[in-house]
């Protein structure tokens, strides 16, 4: 492999990986607080992507031609709506079961995931929808690397959102409450933190990040399919585990790592094995180093 190809593959991987990292953020934040793999995250990501198509097309109809404001407005509306949906998901599928054995909320979040993608399938008739092309497809040459302007913007937007979320958790008062709740829910409650509200907020933020990821993905590839949440959700989960689940900066690291790994995988193996490789990476990590690269931020309790 030439150096140029190597760099190009890394760049490709980073672009895809940044989107995965953004979805992974939702898994990792929820897991950090309530120790639940929120399968619904994959569905929220997909719903976000579809809401994005809807609003984007709508704005096109109202003559909003400037791409950047259109993307921004779409992002804000879809993230808000998906956040609200995540709120409902928490209320319906998690809260009544928070004291139930592990299997119950796991199955309910799985059912929720399936419900979300099935609804998308029914509403759209399972046909792939297309995002309007935003920017010119003319490639940008950055030294030896060639990228489309869209993917460059996607990458920076995803990183920006992730860093923003990390700063939010680290610096704000609410973020502090989230960390406290993650560390010890009872103690946090005793300190006067409304942990129920914090859990809700975590789901909402996770869902909003998922929606952002869905829209960025849609803008980048131009096409969204009703089953995107399945694979996307799983890859993102791999990313979350790889970075150390519960670890917010870990989601970014995990996402980028998974992106680059899968990008390389298809240079050495036939392209159609790509998904299988991601699954294999997932199993290997869980078997060998379940605490991820950076380690879980929250120590596992028995």
């Amino acid at each position: 492999m030439s150096l140029q190809e190597l760099l190009q593959q890394i760049a490709n991987g980073l672009v895809v990986g940044s989107v995965y990292g953004l979805i992974a953020l939702g898994y990792t934040m929820v897991y950090g607080i309530v120790r639940l793999i929120n399968f619904a995250q994959g569905g929220l990501y997909e719903v976000g992507a579809y809401l994005g198509v809807f609003f984007f097309t709508l704005m096109g109809k109202f003559g909003l031609q400037y791409p950047i404001p259109a993307v921004l407005i779409t992002l804000v509306i879809s993230m808000t709506l998906t956040g609200a949906l995540a709120f409902v998901v928490e209320r319906v599928a998690y809260r009544p079961l928070r004291n139930a054995p592990l299997l119950a909320p796991l199955v309910s979040s799985l059912a929720m995931f399936f419900l979300l993608i099935s609804v998308v399938q029914v509403v759209t008739g399972a046909e792939p929808l297309t995002y309007p092309s935003v920017l010119s497809p003319a490639p940008l040459h950055l030294g030896p690397i060639v990228l489309s302007p869209t993917s460059l913007i996607i990458f920076f937007a995803a990183i920006l959102l992730m860093v923003g979320m990390q700063q939010f958790v680290r610096r704000t008062k609410v973020g502090k409450a989230m960390r406290a709740t993650a560390a010890n829910r009872e103690a946090a409650a005793l300190m006067g933190i409304n942990t129920t509200r914090i859990v809700s907020l975590t789901f909402v933020l996770g869902g909003a990040m998922g929606a952002a990821a869905g829209i960025l993905y849609g803008v980048n590839y131009g096409t969204v399919t009703y089953d995107m949440g399945e694979f996307g959700g799983l890859v993102a989960f791999t990313a979350a585990v790889m970075g150390g689940i519960g670890n917010v900066p870990g989601a970014l690291v995990g996402g980028l790592t998974v992106g680059v790994l899968s990008s390389f995988a298809s240079t050495f193996l036939p392209n159609q094995w790509n998904e299988a490789i991601v699954f294999a990476i997932l199993i290997l990590i869980l078997a060998i180093r379940p605490q991820g690269i950076l380690g879980e931020r929250v120590a596992e309790r028995a």
Binding site: Q8, N12, S263, E275
Partner: peptide, 20 residues
């Protein structure tokens, strides 16, 4: 002469190889 996955959306890896 290569097969790609019909359900995938990201083909940049295989295209990068072709480009090289």
């Amino acid at each position: 002469d290569e097969g790609i996955d019909a359900d995938a959306t990201d083909f940049t890896s295989v295209l990068t190889q072709i480009k090289s």
